[in-house]
């Protein structure tokens, strides 16, 4: 409940503040968002599995974001930033899908 509330608050704050993303962060923000989404789905799945752990959730959330951003940063430095960010998005997308499938199985038994 607090999580949903937090999500809503975050959206509202983002709409109200309307910040501009610093130029250096612009390539990493979308990847970080996808990574965070992955962590969120993973957390939801863990919750439904009954093995939700706040420390794990926090760690996975932050490490996902940091690692994803770092991979993209590395790719930028190596000159393959576009391809690597595509790869990261693909991998995270697959994970999100599998987590979503697991959640679906939990909730709808199908």
């Amino acid at each position: 409940m607090i999580a949903i509330l937090g999500l809503a608050i975050g959206v509202v704050v983002g709409l109200l503040v309307q910040p501009t993303v610093p130029v250096e962060l612009q390539p990493y923000l979308p990847i970080a968002v996808v990574a965070a989404l992955d962590a969120l789905f993973g957390g939801l799945r863990a919750l439904l599995d009954g093995i939700f752990n706040d420390r794990v959730f926090l760690t996975s959330f932050l490490s996902n974001v940091v690692v994803a951003a770092f991979i993209v940063f590395l790719g930028d430095q190596l000159g393959v930033g576009t391809q690597l960010s595509t790869a990261v998005v693909v991998v995270l997308g697959i994970r999100i899908f599998s987590n979503a499938a697991s959640i679906r199985r939990h909730l709808f038994r199908a």
């Binding site: 607090i2 949903i4 999500l7 975050g10 969120l40 959730f57």
Partner: peptide
């Protein structure tokens, strides 16, 4: 049980992280 608002550490943490996520999503 997760939907019951409780001031546990896990719930607050999830709330904060979700707020960050929502913020980031909207900004992006």
């Amino acid at each position: 049980s997760a939907l019951h608002p409780r001031a546990t550490r896990a719930q607050l943490l999830a709330g904060v992280l979700c707020a960050v996520l929502g913020f980031a999503v909207v900004v992006q």
